[in-house]
């Protein structure tokens, strides 16, 4: 079984950049994929990769990561008003971030309008 844990941005908002990354990494393990509302800045993405590299051992093989920016809506009007409100709240944090442990998530494929998580089928028990 794989758990998808939703994390509202407010849960990490008060933390420092490093604290945010620690929190994400702490949750994204043991068969849990984190879906964070809001996205990381590029500098935080590299910090997350660095922290991940430090944690890799024979059981933890690293992460799969996808940072998704909100797409431009064709509808305009209502959707864009809604976007403006979200913008005001989240600033350049709009979008979402997926972080999953590499031993269960093999790959994340991003298409313009969907996200696919390829799972590892043959998971060896050690």
């Amino acid at each position: 079984m794989v758990t998808l844990q939703l994390m509202p941005y407010s849960q990490i908002e008060g933390l420092s950049s490093l604290g945010r990354i620690r929190k994400l990494l702490d949750v994204a393990k043991d068969d849990t994929v984190v879906l964070l509302q809001g996205r990381l800045k590029p500098e935080e993405e590299t910090e997350l990769i660095k922290a991940t590299m430090e944690k890799i051992n024979k059981d933890f093989k690293g992460i799969e990561l996808a940072v998704v920016k909100p797409g431009k809506t064709k509808e305009g009007g209502f959707a864009s008003i809604k976007n403006d409100i979200i913008n005001a709240v989240l600033g350049d944090r709009q979008g979402f971030t997926l972080v999953g442990p590499a031993n269960i998530v093999k790959a994340i494929k991003k298409d313009p309008d969907r996200i696919q998580l390829m799972m590892n089928k043959s998971r060896k028990r050690r």
Binding site: I49, T52, G62, A102
Partner: peptide
């Protein structure tokens, strides 16, 4: 090369 995972 930069990666998010490394599996020996």
């Amino acid at each position: 090369g930069i990666a998010t995972k490394i599996d020996y």
